[in-house]
Design a protein around this nucleic acid. Structure first.
Lengths: 215, 215
DNA sequence: CGGTAAGCTGACGGCATGACAGGACAAGTG
DNA sequence: CACTTGTCCTGTCATGCCGTCAGCTTACCG
C-alpha cells in the first residue's frame, strides 16, 4: 500500500533521508505544541532539527504539507478508538460504563494529540478537503460505531423513528472533540475536569439511548 | 466605557482615521472568509483597502491584534443570543420549541460570523487568554441561561442531584459551536442540513431536561 | 576505486514585517 | 487669505523568512 517515500523532486528516500524527514516531523510537532500555528516557520523547524530550510523543502512542499503528514500518522493510530465501542452494550449498567469509557478514552486521545488536532480542525473548518477528510477518517471509527448503536436501538423500537443516527453520532462526537479542545475554558467557568467527564458521559448516554443511565 | 480610539503611537483617531481603520477591519474580515488564517498577510489587507501596510500598523499591532478587535465587535453583538433563551419554558411542547429555536438561532449566528469564530476558537484552543476570554464572553449569554435552566429543573427534583449544570450547559454549547463549524463535514457524512437541526434540538432538550421532548 | 544516486546547504531574488520621518490634508485662527 | 496645528498617510529602509537552484558531499555498489 504505502509506496516508497519520495522527496519533492522525485528521488526515493533512503535510510538517512527518512531519518531526517522524521526528525523534521518530530520537531514540527514540538513547535506546534509550543507556539501558535500561525507563527510556526519553516526556518525554526529546520533549525531545531539541526538542518537547513532547503532540506525541509526537499521533503515537504510547505508547513501545511508536513502537518498533513503528521495528521496522517495520527489518523492511523486513531483506529484504536474503535476498541472503545466494539462489542459494547448500551443497556443497563453496562451502558453507563460504555459511555464513561468512551468519554475517558476519547478525551485522552485528544489530549495526547491536541496540537495537531487543533490544526486539523482549523483546516477542516476552513473548508480544506484534505483536512476534513482526515478529520472524518480520525472520527469515523467512533462515529460509525455510535451511529450503528443508535440505529440498532431504533430498529428495536426503543427510539423515535425520526431520529437520524448519523446526525446524533456526529453531534456527540463533535461535542467530545470540542470539549476536549477547550478544557481550559471549562475550568475558568468553574467546572472541574473531574466533574466534566461524568456529565459528558451522561449526555452521550442520553443521546444514544434516549434514556438516563442506570448507575 | 469605550475610551477614544487610539493609534498604536498614541494619537487620538479622528473621523477620517476611524473610517480608514474600519475599512481595514472590513477588508480583514473579507480576507478571513476567503483564505486560510495562516495566509492572511498585512500587505493583502492593506492593498484591498486601497492603502499601505504602514497605515495598517498605525492602527493595529499585527494581524492578530486586528482580529481581536473584530472579535470584540462580534462579542458585543452576541448579547442578542440571550433572547433565544430569556423567559423560555422547557416544559411540554414549549420546551421542544425552545430547543429548536435555540439551535436555529445559534447556528445562524455562527454561520454569519464563522470566519472570525474559527480564529477565536483556534486562539482559545492554543491557550491564548485573550481569545478564550473572548470566547467565554460570546458563549456566556447562552451558557449561563442554559445552566440556570438546568439548575432550576434540578432544584425541582426533576434531574439527578449529581448533574453539574455548568458542565452540561458548557458541553451543549460546545456541541452547537462545533457542529456549526463543521457542517460541511456532516454533509459529506451523508447527513443533510435540514436533518441536522432537529437532532441537535433533541440532544439539547435531552441534556437540559433529561427527557424526550413532546412534539 | 570510480560511478551513480541520495542527501545537504549556501546563496539569491522576492516579499512581509515593523519602524520612522516627512509630506498631504482638514480645520480653525488672525 | 496666509498661517498654524494636529491628524493622517506613505516612501523608504533594515531585517528576516520564503522557496528555489546549482553544486558540493556522502553513501552505496559493482
Amino acid at each position: 500500500m504505502t509506496g516508497q517515500v519520495r522527496t519533492v523532486d522525485g528521488r526515493v528516500a533512503g535510510k538517512r533521508g527518512q531519518a531526517t524527514r522524521q526528525k523534521l516531523l518530530d520537531c514540527l510537532s514540538e513547535m506546534l505544541s509550543s507556539s501558535p500555528y500561525r507563527d510556526v516557520k519553516v526556518i525554526d523547524v529546520a533549525r531545531r532539527a539541526g538542518t537547513s530550510p532547503a532540506t525541509f523543502y526537499q521533503y515537504f512542499p510547505d508547513v501545511e504539507g508536513a502537518v498533513l503528514e503528521l495528521a496522517e500518522e495520527m489518523a492511523a493510530e486513531s483506529g484504536a478508538l474503535t476498541e472503545l465501542l466494539e462489542g459494547r452494550s448500551w443497556t443497563g449498567r453496562a451502558g453507563w460504563q460504555t459511555a464513561q469509557e468512551l468519554v475517558d478514552g476519547f478525551l485522552e486521545f485528544w489530549r495526547r494529540n491536541d496540537a495537531i488536532l487543533r490544526v486539523v480542525d482549523l483546516g477542516a473548518a476552513e473548508g480544506d478537503k484534505r483536512f476534513y477528510k482526515l478529520r472524518m477518517k480520525i472520527l469515523n471509527s467512533v462515529n460509525s460505531s455510535l451511529a450503528a448503536s443508535v440505529a440498532e436501538l431504533q430498529s428495536k423500537g426503543r427510539l423515535d423513528k425520526d431520529v437520524n443516527p448519523g446526525a446524533i453520532a456526529g453531534a456527540l462526537v463533535a461535542m467530545l472533540a470540542a470539549v476536549a479542545s477547550h478544557q481550559k475554558g471549562f475550568s475558568s467557568w468553574g467546572v472541574k475536569q473531574a466533574e466534566l467527564k461524568p456529565n459528558l458521559a451522561l449526555l452521550v448516554h442520553l443521546g444514544v439511548t434516549g434514556r438516563k443511565p442506570t448507575k
